[in-house]
Amino acid sequence: MKTTREQGRGRMLAALPMSIWAVLFVALALLYIIGLSFLSRGEGFDAQLPITFDNYLRMAAPTYLKSLLLSLRLAFLTALCCALLGYPLAYFIAKTSPRVRTWLLILIIAPFWTNALIRIYGWKTLFIANGPLNTALLSLGIIEKPLRLLYTEKAVLVGMVYAMIPFFVLPVYSGIERLDGSIVEASRDLGAGPVRAFFTVTLPMTMPSVLAALVLTFIPSIGLFFISDLLGGSNTMLWGNVIQNELLKSRDLPFASALSVVLLTLTCIVLAVYRKLGGDAESMVF
């Protein structure tokens, strides 16, 4: 018996380097900023005692509240738009023939393999005042003078939806694909029209994957800062932009930590709600 116990322990030792690494550079790093958020600002880039709640109280100022609301609104709208655009797309892909499906999936994944910055940069080129989009609209006679597209909230929303949509389509696609087609057929045989069958059978049954996809699009959206940086300029200060500013411009580490802790808490709340609604981590892996 002794040998099996030793073997079991020896085996676990193999996971030790990874565990030490993760505890040191992930768990401790996160705990460290939580601790920092209760300290006062020190010399330069440091923090010092006494322990204080000032960092959190400071966030009650209108600028920060406004930015938090804007971030939440944009993240919510992003998830919503991804759902409205992504669900039909995922449904369409799942219903095509296997050969076409493979190609469509590659087409969805391929942009995801290219740097997000490049794709956002493409939008910036498009949106520029005398750029291709305005030129096209002008020559088609749809508009009379160039629209202001860049550095608006809408531009940021377009960029965020664009960056996040693969994260919505893929889990929902695998959800629809896993769905047993005979159940839908049964409802049709029992006299439900295609629309009714979709709303009473397909949609409720693929809800777990939709929920997972919403979480997958919502969480990163609150923390993104480079999309609003490039497409929104200084007009759209999202929570991520505020953190970045406090950290790199004001070099206020404790306050930036406190702002990050708020973001971390929001993430945990969303994940907790997701678990409560019956979501499991598995449907988030695709």
């Binding site: 996971a15 992930v26 969480i219 950290l247």
Partner: peptide
Amino acid sequence: FINFGEQAAMLPIMIPELIMGIALLALFS
């Protein structure tokens, strides 16, 4: 310890990247 390590190891792809970046910056400094 290893159970905890596994949980911690998965965190970087679950929380916003921004938080990981700041946490590591703080730790390194």
